[in-house]
């Protein structure tokens, strides 16, 4: 017993180091295989507030460009609206809508890591829940991963773990959108079968297979494509529409049918076994 205590006292620094290392590695490795930790994220109260107050200052530097962006979007939406034959305002009653939209502001953005997360200033209080889709006026951005009362972290499409259903516009050939961690303006679309005719410059949009994003939200254009090692599927490099380095205003999409879809899928899965 004496010897054990002596041993612990003599190597206490080393043991402390090993203990702390195991703790850190535990958190880190767990996040590689599963979700971001519930506690170790920037949506908590302290970090959220510090990041937000910093953002309150820095946001003024980009106001001009941001206004321009929003004007362009309004212009586009107005054009759609005015050219529509008839407008039925009762259809905008929120009870009947499948998708509802909340706006938010980015208070922290990163794009240089293998696993990038964006923090936004909307949380549980604004009825933002995990697994909602987040887009900007130009294209998709990511999926909400964790929420606190006032903030939420978003798993960016520039994240190793990101996997989003996407398709080639005006066709029904869909694949998965992933990121190879190399460039912040290029993501990869995989699992598109070889028989699909592709051209450089084709637009990639979200597919209808996910219960997170509505169909046909723009993602980017094809920059380059080649066959994968098995020669049966394409690896496509997609140049993003979004400038991931400069994002201020975002829209958070809530699909009111999502729970029903998930429930049904779960039911089918258990019945199938």
């Amino acid at each position: 017993m004496q010897q054990i205590i002596n041993f612990i006292i003599r190597y206490k620094n080393f043991l402390l180091y090993v203990f702390l290392m195991i703790v850190s590695l535990g958190f880190t490795i767990q996040s590689h295989s599963y979700h971001q930790s519930r506690f170790f994220n920037s949506s908590n109260w302290i970090t959220g507030n510090i990041l937000e107050s910093s953002n309150n200052v820095s946001t003024y530097f980009g106001l001009d460009r941001e206004n321009q962006k929003l004007m362009h979007e309004n212009e586009y939406l107005r054009k759609l609206l005015f050219n529509k034959k008839e407008i039925d305002t009762t259809a905008l009653d929120s009870v009947q809508l499948t998708y509802t939209i909340t706006t938010g502001k980015v208070i922290k953005n990163s794009f240089a890591d293998p696993r990038n997360y964006i923090t936004i200033n909307q949380g549980k209080k604004d009825s933002v829940k995990p697994d909602m889709g987040v887009i900007t006026s130009k294209g998709i951005l990511g999926i909400v991963e964790n929420t606190s009362n006032n903030f939420a972290t978003v798993q960016s499409i520039l994240n190793e773990k990101s996997n989003i259903n996407a398709k080639i516009k005006n066709t029904n050939h869909f694949g998965s959108l992933v990121w190879n961690m190399k460039q912040y303006n290029v993501v990869q679309l995989v699992d598109i079968p070889r028989l699909v005719p592709l051209t450089i410059g084709d637009t990639i949009v979200t597919g209808g297979m996910s219960s997170i994003f509505p169909e046909n939200i723009p993602i980017g254009t094809i920059r380059k494509f080649d066959l994968n090692t098995s020669k049966s599927f394409y690896n496509i490099d997609v140049a993003l529409f979004n400038d991931m380095t400069n994002i201020k205003n975002v829209y958070i999409i809530d699909n009111s049918n999502r729970e029903e879809i998930l429930e049904l899928e779960k039911l089918t899965e258990t019945n199938g076994q």
Binding site: V23, S24, T28, Q36, F40, S42, R115
Partner: peptide, 13 residues
Amino acid sequence: IDFFSDTMAIHAA
């Protein structure tokens, strides 16, 4: 630092 940058416990390690 990890809390702010969403990097789990990599900085700590």
